[in-house]
Amino acid sequence: MSENASNPFENQPEKPVHTEVTPVVPENNGPGNTPPFQQPPPFGQFGGGMGQQNLPNSTIALVLGIISIPGCCCYGVLGLILGIIAWVLGGKDIKQYALNPAAYSLPSYKNAKAGKICGIIGVVLGALYLIFIIAFVIFFGWAALQDPELMKEMLREKGLQ
């Protein structure tokens, strides 16, 4: 057997070899659909750009501000307390954002602003409800002091006496 016959691939012309690799990019790359070659951003950085962080009390101000509104039904006191805290915390974060807006994310600024507004609403509603309760107690207390028979009659109507 000759050498040429033993190796049939030796005398054939060489085929061009392509070394260029084309990347495969999946379609429909939305915000929740990251390509397999990219890692998702670290926790807490979805709302901001590079180096932006959340304002420290924006979420707390928002939660307390929201809770302060229905908290006004507790004789106005709970709404006042939570509303004042939300108002102060939201105001501090808004001032902090105004000093350096590039360092903080816009969604956390909006949370702080909404928390401050909800806190203001909670304080106003709580104060109005508390004033109404105090006026009611003073009016009917004064009426009971002036006419004890009227107070006895009111208690009988309510079934308390």
Rank of each mutant, 00 (worst) to 15 (best):
G126A: 08
A114I: 08
A112W: 08
N4P: 00
E153T: 14
N11I: 08
E149G: 07
G76P: 08
Y129L: 10
L62Q: 05
L99G: 13
V124T: 03
P31R: 14
N11G: 15
C73L: 15
F37W: 15
L55N: 02
I120P: 00
T22F: 07
A112P: 13
D147Q: 02
P107F: 09
L128M: 11
D147Y: 12
N100A: 12
Y109T: 00
P148Q: 04
L80K: 00
A103R: 11
P56R: 13
S58G: 13
K116P: 01
I134W: 04
P70W: 09
I133D: 04
E157I: 13
L89Q: 05
L160H: 05
N100R: 03
L78R: 01
I81Q: 03
T22A: 03
I133G: 00
N7D: 11
V123I: 15
I67H: 03
Y129G: 01
Q45F: 08
G30C: 06
Q53I: 12
L128R: 01
F46D: 10
G48P: 04
N111C: 07
K116H: 15
L78N: 00
G65A: 13
S2K: 08
F37S: 07
N29V: 06
G76C: 10
K92Y: 11
G90I: 05
Y109N: 05
P23M: 08
Q53G: 09
P31F: 13
T19N: 13
F43Q: 08
G76T: 06
P70E: 04
F46H: 02
A86I: 11
F132T: 05
G79I: 03
A114M: 08
G119P: 05
G32F: 14
E157A: 09
C118G: 08
G71S: 02
T59E: 09
N33G: 06
I67S: 05
Q53M: 13
G47H: 07
K92C: 04
N4S: 12
C74S: 08
I120K: 04
S68F: 02
I60L: 13
G83D: 05
P56L: 08
C72V: 06
L82R: 00
V63W: 07
L125V: 07
G115L: 10
C118M: 15
K110D: 11
I69R: 00
L82I: 00
I66E: 01
T34K: 05
T59Q: 12
F139D: 02
V25E: 11
G47A: 11
E14A: 14
S58H: 07
V137K: 09
A143R: 12
S68Y: 02
N28K: 10
L99S: 15
C72F: 04
L82V: 02
A135S: 14
I133M: 14
Y75S: 02
T34W: 15
W142A: 12
T59L: 06
Q45V: 05
P56D: 03
R156H: 11
I131K: 01
K116S: 04
M1L: 11
F140K: 06
A103D: 09
G30T: 14
Q146H: 12
Q161R: 10
D93C: 11
Q146W: 04
A114W: 15
V137S: 11
V21W: 10
I60T: 15
L64G: 06
A61N: 04
L125I: 07
L99M: 14
P101W: 01
E153A: 12
L106V: 09
G141T: 11
